Computed example of a mutant assay.
Amino acid sequence: MKEFTQIKENCLYIKDLQKAKKFYHHTLGLEIIHHEEEKHIFFRVGSSVLLCFNPEDSKLKTSPPAHYAEGNQHFAFEVNQAEYENVKNKVQKLGITIIDTIVWKGGEESFYFHDPENNVLEVVPTGVWS
């Protein structure tokens, strides 16, 4: 639908929400906007929200409908093109290992790293999908 303007939420399924809190809030600095122990933790990312659900809890829900996933999930953080190298350096200084770097058709570079649950996170500069 043309009326859709963006993906407002992205969801990861994470069994250890305390590790998620430490990584996403304390290490990456994302603001916590809601947290229920053993159930879920939500983070603000710019104008979007990163939802981290405990899959053992969320697959039993009736409202909102049950949902869960297994295995390594993926999403990308977007940064201003002028800040890309700075963010890459900050990630490395935090002791986070960059596991891959790709140069896309348009010449833009993105890099990948893991969170504590082994999900594959990416940082892309604005313009990658333009």
Rank of each mutant, 00 (worst) to 15 (best):
E3D: 05
S48W: 00
D115V: 10
I33T: 09
V120F: 00
F111R: 05
E70N: 12
L12E: 01
I96L: 04
Y13Q: 09
N89D: 10
Q73F: 06
V49M: 05
K15C: 00
V87M: 04
K105F: 10
V91F: 01
T126M: 07
E122A: 06
K93R: 10
A20C: 14
Q18P: 03
V103Q: 08
V87P: 01
E85Y: 07
E78C: 08
L51V: 04
T27H: 05
V128E: 01
V45Q: 06
V128K: 11
E9T: 14
E78R: 11
G95D: 08
S110W: 00
T27D: 15
G29S: 11
K22H: 14
E78S: 11
D57M: 05
H35Y: 13
F42H: 10
G106P: 00
Y13L: 09
Q6K: 13
Y13G: 03
H35F: 12
Q18L: 15
I96H: 03
N80T: 02
W129F: 14
T97C: 01
Y24K: 11
N119Y: 09
L94D: 04
E83I: 08
F43Q: 02
F43I: 12
V124C: 07
I7S: 05
N119G: 09
K90A: 04
N72T: 12
H25Q: 15
Y24N: 13
P125V: 03
T5C: 03
H114G: 02
G71S: 11
N10Y: 07
N80W: 01
Q73V: 12
T5Y: 03
N80P: 02
E70P: 01
A66C: 07
H114F: 12
